[in-house]
Write a protein that binds this DNA or RNA. Structure first.
Lengths: 302, 302
DNA sequence: GTGAAAGCGCTAACAC
DNA sequence: GTGTTAGCGCTTTCAC
């Protein structure tokens, strides 16, 4: 009854509530979990090639937010790496008892299909979702559109794009948005594959300038890559933003500290993680997909 | 008995172990926590002026590591902000049941004194410790010594230092180490207060160059501040490392990406967090203080 | 609507 | 050493 859910008259509930606060009663999470088999942990699973994905600052931000939200409900958070090509692991993870809920970061759709039935309603995805897994994600399409149109509005026409890793489904919509803008302005699409690393950005910059020497802007789907592009361009003696404008995506902490400071699009990562964590923890009926806006941040590089 | 701890004959233990693995038995963390009153959560408390300290990437790294270690033991991690001047909150935190252990990040000694008795043996500090709270920390003294001596060995003599916030006890040893080196080389100490922010670094650079125009090196006890110093010096038209060398401390992710790339001292944050988390989770008798080495990383700025 | 009783899966304390 | 039993603090179910 202490949950406030059960059947009870209004005044009875009030009296109990009063007693609860007066006595400083705090429910015991472990006992509750044991009796209701509801679990005591919120597991956060990050999909990627290697366990190194866990060290990404982005994961840190998600984890920090989730751990904070979870703390208010007396539940803990645990962190797990899900090897990209072994979705089976997800089932193994879910098999463990004590699992109160599951947050999957950067999921692929096949991986999400392996989520066991009995976890439904207690899973959320930060990234793409499925019919059974609600999605909390950045609106990549509009975000990309905003950045590329900013490039166009500042006079750029020969714009190249460095994408993300091909297995990450969220990149598709960004590429589509970029392609659409280029078609609208009658420009050629210049897409180069990326992997979200700075090293790749530097290499991509060299490739782009070699293939299309007249390129006047580069948009990278990751700030780290954009920073790499900045370095690569610098090494080539190309002036930014004089000769070529550079824009990133994510607005990582260092974007404002680079020289030139990086123009990018900022994501409400904390809001997204908080919403996803709450959806799982509070089991509220959630929409199939919740989109969060990405907003342009104009600095020096474009 | 399933814990492997209790009294039992060797063969009996073996048979049980065999059965355990054959049947795929997995202990229920919630039930265990309830019966043994051992708690299901590892709380991580970060001390600071505002709740914004939780957003520091450093906290993210600690949390990530702890959550990973905790996951192996089926316990979750929760994150809490401890207002700098209200150590009482720590007691309140510990009062809640379900608390398996506590990790205090960047503690002050007074705050640590408020740790309740019954939590002893299940608390660890990342930073300074007390008689009852084991400390896991970076060897700031040797780390600082290494950086400053590197500055000296490259010909610098008029070296200024930007410290950290005064309430953080760990800064003292660093200032001592700096002072000692300066005394050894017969140089003047030039200490300016800092607060670990980049903005303060830029301001500190201006102050330093105004007070001591002949300064030929600046050491900041934080990479973010050092990055700010880089900016401040740049604005002043001072060449780095030509006119003035700049060195930081921490080796944050972007230290290698700045221009010029930042010379700094790297800390094994993950190792520290892992050791502290294990000490709390495994209740092993721990040393009063465990020091981790900070090692010089020479890049372009010094 | 309300109260009592039966577990949830473990650990710990006690008898054998 | 080994087996047994009584809870841990809740939720749930079932009588009232």
């Amino acid at each position: 009854m202490v949950t406030g859910q059960g059947p009870a008259s209004a005044k009875a509930r009030d009296r109990v509530t009063a007693a609860v606060t007066r006595l400083g009663y705090v429910p015991d999470a472990a006992a509750r979990a044991l009796a209701s088999r509801s679990g005591t942990r919120l597991a956060i699973a990050v999909i990627g090639h290697t366990a190194a994905v866990l060290d990404d600052p982005y994961v840190g931000r998600v984890l920090t937010t989730a751990a904070h939200i979870a703390a208010e409900r007396e539940v803990g958070v645990s962190l797990h790496w899900l090897p990209l090509n072994e979705p089976v692991t997800l089932a193994a993870l879910a098999g463990r008892r004590g699992l109160g809920g599951l947050l999957v970061v950067n999921p692929t759709r096949p991986a999400l299909e392996t989520v066991p039935r009995d976890l439904r309603g207690r899973v959320a995805a930060i990234g793409v979702g499925t019919r059974h897994v609600p999605s909390f994600d950045v609106d990549n399409r509009t975000g990309t559109d905003g950045v590329v149109r900013h490039l166009v509005s500042t006079g750029r026409r020969r714009i190249a794009m460095v994408t993300g890793p091909s297995w990450l489904p969220c990149g598709d919509r960004a590429v589509e948005a970029y392609t659409r803008v280029m078609r609208d302005i009658g420009g050629e699409t210049r897409v180069v594959p990326g992997d979200f690393t700075a090293a790749r950005g530097a290499a991509a910059a060299a490739e782009i300038m070699a293939h299309w020497p007249d390129t006047d802007a580069v948009f990278a789907l990751s700030d780290l890559t954009a920073l790499g592009v900045l370095d690569g361009l610098h090494a080539l003696g190309v002036d930014v933003p004089g000769d070529v404008a550079v824009a990133g995506f994510d607005d990582i902490a260092f974007a404002s500290l680079s020289r030139p400071a990086l123009t990018t699009s900022t994501h409400p990562v904390e809001d997204i993680a908080a919403a996803a964590a709450r959806a799982v923890l509070d089991r509220g009926g959630t929409d199939r997909v919740t989109c969060f806006p990405s907003t342009l941040v104009v600095r020096e590089s474009a």
